[in-house]
């Protein structure tokens, strides 16, 4: 498949935004459980605002993918069948919840509404946080299922696509939370750093299994089934177009396959060991800059990873374009 920059930016930016939003809510939950010191409202408010900025950036990038962005609102229609439609509904919902959650902290709407059990004081920010968690997880599933639901792209048609989006997105978001805390000089950098390392390692397992699965994948369709001629020797002589077509552009990455393979090592290095080492190092030397660097490198790696995710997928229609394939 041809990797579109707009889609690469969309999926990486909203992944980091969703992860950061989850990180803010997780921080609050830990504080409620007295595992962490309670933070100022401003901490959650600006964190949610930063998450919102990433979500907005992703949404903005997605418009460049569309031929008719002015009609994008129509995409909410087919939520019963289309994961893309579901994403179009859930993404603004997450943005609204992030804004509301941030506002609840910024304006101090934290008067307890009711109490559960002995000590759990439920306020508006907690309710919004729970709703935000559900919506954010739903958005990860929707985004990933856009790809995983296309059964013809066997490289994508696996639950590992969903786990990749979930764990790589949350890892990047918690890394961003660590960077944000480090920037503020907040001691929560250790908490977020540790979680980002855990999520990064889980993400590595998921992506590694995905790569291993795809390397062993046997294409379901062959040139023989594509044109219905049972013969081992079939050579294509004409593709039906002189100067290429939509089919010869949209479904091919147009790069040397060895580059695609080499990029695998690049992104695996950028996403997994380097940020983990940088976070570890930042504990030792208590540097405020290293978590920011770790996030930046991992985000760059995720963009390469998303490029390769598209390039690795081989569409069965390519069988009809043998000289491009």
């Amino acid at each position: 498949m041809h990797p579109a920059l707009s889609v690469i930016l969309l999926t990486t930016a909203i992944g980091a935004g969703q992860g950061l939003f989850l990180a803010m809510i997780t921080g609050q939950l830990y504080a409620i459980a007295h595992f962490l010191p309670v933070q100022e409202g401003q901490f959650y408010a600006f964190g949610s605002l930063l998450a919102l900025a990433f979500l907005l950036a992703g949404l903005g990038a997605s418009f460049f993918h569309l031929g008719h962005p002015e009609r994008a609102w129509r995409a909410i229609a087919m939520w019963r069948t289309s994961w893309l439609s579901r994403e179009v509904i859930v993404l603004p919902l997450v943005m609204i919840l992030a804004l509301a959650y941030g506002s609840a902290h910024a304006f101090g709407w934290t008067r307890p509404l009711f109490q559960i059990g002995e000590s759990l004081q439920v306020d508006l920010s907690l309710l919004l946080g729970i709703a935000g968690t559900i919506a954010t997880l739903a958005l990860f599933v929707c985004t990933a299922m856009i790809y995983a639901a296309v059964r013809f792209l066997q490289e994508w048609h696996t639950p590992l696509t969903v786990s990749n989006f979930l764990f790589l997105g949350t890892a990047s978001g918690f890394m961003l939370a660590a960077a944000y805390s480090a920037y503020l000089g907040n001691p929560l950098v250790t908490f977020y750093g540790t979680w980002s390392v855990i999520l990064t390692l889980v993400g590595f397992i998921s992506r590694f299994l995905h790569l291993r699965r795809n390397d062993r994948l046997k294409p379901k369709s062959t040139l023989q089934t594509a044109i219905g001629i049972r013969h081992t020797q079939i050579v294509q002589k004409a593709q039906g177009a002189t100067g290429g077509s939509f089919n010869t552009g949209e479904f091919f990455h147009g790069q040397n396959p060895r580059l695609v393979y080499a990029l695998r090592y690049l992104y695996l290095t950028l996403i997994f060991p380097i940020p983990v080492l940088l976070i570890g190092l930042s504990y030792v030397i208590t540097s405020p800059r290293l978590p920011i660097l770790a996030f930046g490198i991992q985000f760059l790696g995720l963009m390469v990873e998303r490029w390769a995710f598209f390039a690795e997928a081989r569409h069965p229609q390519n069988l009809y374009y043998q000289s491009v394939a």
């Binding site: 993918h65 013809f152 069965p316």
Partner: peptide, 18 residues
């Protein structure tokens, strides 16, 4: 049509063109 190309991804025959 918003031109998102998703239907072309979901066609194994490459029958759709933007």
């Amino acid at each position: 049509c918003i031109g998102c190309k998703y239907c072309s991804w979901a066609c194994p025959y490459g029958a759709r063109e933007l």
